[in-house]
């Protein structure tokens, strides 16, 4: 568990980061909280001759709750999300999900940007951001561009971000209605056996919109558009729940690991989604 030797950089601004990325190409990686990258380096599964620490880069922090959207700087930690009352008011699902990530020590270091940018299918924030239809801001040599969370993930650790780009912010349209982040895990600190993010609105007894995304049930987060659609216009009764779960089952592709075989994960995914929808609906 000793990494190979590497150069360590701690630039003060994004221009400095981009310059280092330009100079070192594939040999450089940016690091936010480091909770994914450093273990990979220690296991010598990631070779990073040039490590660029983003801790001192200006302008990457901050939580802004606006009229219609929320902006989270990439370096906002899970702990900051949990502790921000305005955010909890505007988008309570963020706190609910962040509290289910790892443990307080990890959450003190772990960032939103790192969590969404790394492309680890076990991370909770990517699915959550797909549920919330967040947009990621990427800054590269040619300036800035926006990529929707729902378009960002190609495969495990493969994302729309280019090697010389830095994810600097996450923008979330203000969520409406009821929410739930439901996660089954073996223990504190574990990735999900299955997790579901649900945001749902209602008028009277009828569902008007539903957004659903699943975590750790495929090599990317799984935004289940059809599962959400199955709820719209219904009273979220048993038949609607069944339809949503069936639609979700068609979208996920879990693989066997120490958490259990595929059959178990599929079953749990259904149970978790059902519970998440019911809880979100009760809050809508």
């Amino acid at each position: 568990m000793i990494p190979a030797s590497f150069e360590y950089y701690r630039p003060k601004d994004i221009a400095g980061v981009l310059a280092l990325l330009r100079d070192h190409g594939d040999d450089a990686r940016v690091m936010a909280g480091g909770h994914s990258l450093i273990p990979m380096m220690k296991l010598r599964m990631a070779e990073v001759p040039h490590l660029i620490d983003l801790q001192d880069v200006a302008g990457l922090g901050g939580i802004e709750v606006g009229e219609s959207s929320i902006r989270l700087g990439a370096m906002v930690t899970q702990t900051e999300i949990i502790g921000h009352d305005g955010l909890a008011q505007a988008a309570p699902i963020l706190r609910e999900a962040a509290l289910q990530i790892a443990d307080p020590q990890v959450r003190n270091m772990g960032t939103v940007g790192g969590n969404v940018a790394n492309g680890d299918p076990g991370n909770d924030m990517p699915g959550l951001m797909q549920c919330l239809d967040a947009v990621f801001t990427l800054v590269g040599q040619d300036g800035e561009r926006q990529v929707a969370a729902r378009e960002f993930y190609d495969a495990a650790y493969m994302t729309a971000r280019e090697d010389d780009e830095v994810l600097t912010a996450v923008t979330i349209p203000l969520p409406k209605g009821g929410h739930a982040y439901e996660k089954q895990k073996r223990k504190i600190g574990d990735y999900a056996t299955a997790a579901a993010a649900v945001q749902i609105t209602r008028e009277g007894g009828s569902c008007t919109a539903a957004s659903i995304a699943m975590t750790n049930l495929s090599d990317t987060p799984v935004f289940c558009e059809e599962a959400g659609a199955a709820l719209v216009g219904t009273s979220v009764d048993t038949a609607a729940l069944d339809a949503a779960v069936a639609a979700m089952q068609a979208a996920i592709d879990p693989s066997e690991d120490n958490r259990g075989p595929v059959e178990f994960k599929r079953h749990v995914a259904g149970v978790i989604l059902r519970r998440a929808i019911e809880r979100a609906w009760s809050r809508a």
Binding site: Q184, R186, T193, R259, G260, P261, F264, H267, V268
Partner: peptide
């Protein structure tokens, strides 16, 4: 008796 074995 982890989750999946109990489930099983």
């Amino acid at each position: 008796h982890d989750h999946w074995r109990i489930w099983k």
